[in-house]
Design a protein around this nucleic acid. Structure first.
Lengths: 153, 153
DNA sequence: GACAATTACTTGTGCGCGCAACCTTTCCCC
DNA sequence: GGGGAAAGGTTGCGCGCACAAGTAATTGTC
């Protein structure tokens, strides 16, 4: 292997600020959301379901969307089902598949929690950023996302 | 409560790309690092210690630096100690405190893993970004970090 | 039409982490 | 200097997650 290309000063600064921000931010948002009785993961489930046709998704599609393993999703749903925010519905067409379906209570819980969560995102991420910076952020992570999707996995 | 201020289209795009990128990126970096036998958390411990005076830190300072609970750090160190990459050293000055000290093997392991990890950061985050974008990224997360530090926590 | 291969999901197991409880040592203050 | 408060670490416990193995249903192939 040839000599290593270390990070430039500008890259190092970006990397450090980024890493530090991400870990702090996720913890802050988690606790911002806590009063609603939801975890960030639960919230994401409800959001995905609410955006889906008939407010339901197949387990495996949901797992992929959430970057969760099948077993992880099963356990996560266990909690949401006992809270009655989500119901398991067997598919009539394919008896292997289970749908996760948003219940009315789940919809209500999401509607209740969403404004606070949006406020949380605003205050934890966007606060203090200019319009241009928000736009740049979108561009940067569009590139990053595409790059990650393209790379050897 | 007044009406909720939802995210603008630009904010929504930035938020979605950001969230998606972060989760994918951390998984990718974790597996990039796996061949070295280290986890990202282990790596961070070694980095912190290597940057510290005498290659050692007090447990509580290290826990704070890594955003880890005291118990979490204790367990994490357990692994590194049995791998002999880090040693626990009692402080002569204050018998409550334990130092986590980088061993020569730990230093060697870090030197071995660092180039690959730097390459990973380059390829997962910076690849495809212009010089200006890297700079903007540093600015943005400097603001975010400061904002997070200032907020009610 | 029957038997492999695949797909969908659940359960067993282990790991990493946080919280609460605990012990020891040090600090503070009267 | 003696007693309460605080600080530093470790252990018990539970939760969330991934991996591997298991079950059930569907698809493909001869």
């Amino acid at each position: 292997m040839a000599t290593t290309t270390w990070l430039s000063a500008s890259e190092m600064r970006a990397w450090r600020n980024f890493i530090e921000s991400v870990s702090t931010m996720s913890a802050a948002m988690e606790s911002d959301l806590a009063p609603s009785g939801l975890t960030l993961g639960d919230y994401e489930v409800l959001v995905r379901l609410s955006e889906s046709e008939n407010q339901r998704m197949r387990m495996c599609d949901l797992a992929t969307a959430l970057h969760l393993s099948p077993s992880g999703l099963t356990r996560r749903l266990d909690g949401l089902v006992t809270s009655e925010l989500v119901a398991r519905v067997a598919s009539p067409a394919d008896r292997r598949v289970m749908f996760a379906a948003l219940t009315p209570a789940g919809h209500a819980k999401l509607a209740d929690a969403a404004p606070d969560h949006v406020a949380s995102v605003r205050s934890r991420l966007f606060k203090g950023l200019s319009r241009d910076q928000v736009h740049a952020l979108g561009d940067i992570f569009e590139t990053v996302k595409a790059n990650l999707a393209a790379c050897p996995e």
